[in-house]
Design a protein around this nucleic acid. Structure first.
Lengths: 215, 215
DNA sequence: TCACGGTTCTGTGTATACACTGAGGCCAGT
DNA sequence: ACTGGCCTCAGTGTATACACAGAACCGTGA
């Protein structure tokens, strides 16, 4: 693996995990020393982070980690809605029904498990991997590399803001039902319904986020 | 201006204008010599192009200009639809009605001009700048940097594809009416109508493209 | 004491040198 | 003649050296 790839992966993770909080200045020599690479591959990594929107050029003063605000989250969700609704609709048309019937069943099982034992940690971890499976399934079924790339990017930003939204068991239980609905709509081959279910899910997620962060 | 910025701008334009057609291998030393910069800033430019999706890493063999196919155009329009419909809807809610009333009038005037003198070159050039004004107006009214960034990127790819679609006067006349409808819907503050008008416009544009390229 | 100018220093931008990997061609053996 | 292995070389990946620009700090003069 190339040094620039390693530097990029490390910096990206550090930013997403808030070890490098918003506003941090990323000095080239400093980060190069910290990550054990030379300045050249580190600069490449910083360029990629800038392209991703996780960092920005602060004229003359190097690059800084992009700040985050409530408006940022709203904007991010508006973009996310556009992308995920389109992806769900396309998946409904092109996806294999079996795949999403299975996912629906998995989500309903997960919901039952979360009902039985709310707050249990392995169940939560398993749930997150299940969500990732649904996302991956939709991406693949949508069969659109441009859309997929845009979704990867928006999910990257969402992963960072997720650190602000400590999800409670009750909300987790709700999302399981919403995800099951989305999977069912795709399995049924109904693009409008799939998009609507996705829109509802995202609306509720944002609402939940706001009730927590704006008291 | 930095050497890496110049190299990026030059390469991007060369790719969009098909002076570097799809499949071209971009050797570092070769391009560095051609553009009169060193390899270091050129590598940065290539990294940005790769992030944009205009070039891709061909393992070990340097980067190559991304290929284009009919499926590519379909996929691009699916992403474009998601983004532009969302942007139009947001603009309808947040934009100033005056701005878009003026744009609507301009489009109707342009339509009349195109009717009177079809194929006239200055009218066409003026029309393209008018379209750019509408795009910019929607972007600004939507007030969403993430969405705007995604739109910039998709328009970059569209600019490259546009070289395949030689637009005829009749189609240009139609788009003027469609654009006027979009502007009117935004001015009226109707997000659903704005999104629908945008969807119709893009559907017809793609249809036109297909009738030309798939005989 | 405050303001202005100069100097220094840190840090980025660029160029170049060196190492390594991957591919292609050539030679030898079967 | 064909195939497999080795050698060579082109080209990328990385490191480092050098130049330049911006900022901060200190000194001096009013």
């Amino acid at each position: 693996m190339r040094a620039s790839d390693r530097a990029y992966a490390m910096l990206r993770e550090d930013i997403v995990e808030w070890r490098l909080p918003p506003g941090t200045v990323l000095g080239e020599v400093e980060q190069a020393k910290r990550l054990g690479v030379s300045r050249t591959p580190l600069r490449e990594a910083l360029a990629r982070l800038t392209a991703d929107g996780l960092a920005a050029q602060h004229t003359g003063r190097g690059v800084v980690v992009t700040p985050i605000s409530p408006e940022t989250v709203e904007a991010l969700f508006e973009l996310r809605q556009a992308l995920e609704c389109q992806a769900a609709a396309l998946a409904a048309v092109r996806g294999r029904a079996e795949t999403f019937r299975a996912l629906r069943a998995d989500f309903e099982a997960a919901a039952a498990r979360l009902d039985a034992d709310p707050g249990e940690d392995p169940a939560r971890r398993g749930y997150y991997t299940l969500v990732a499976r649904l996302d991956a399934g939709i991406d693949e079924a949508a069969a659109n590399p441009y859309l997929a790339q845009a979704l990867v990017n928006v999910r990257l930003h969402l992963a960072r803001v997720r650190r602000l939204a400590k999800d409670n068991p009750a909300r987790l239980r709700e999302t399981a039902a919403e995800h099951a609905t989305i999977a069912a709509a795709i399995a049924a081959g109904d693009p409008a319904l799939a998009a609507a279910a996705t829109k509802v899910h995202l609306h509720k997620s944002l609402e939940h986020f706001n009730t927590i962060n704006h008291p």
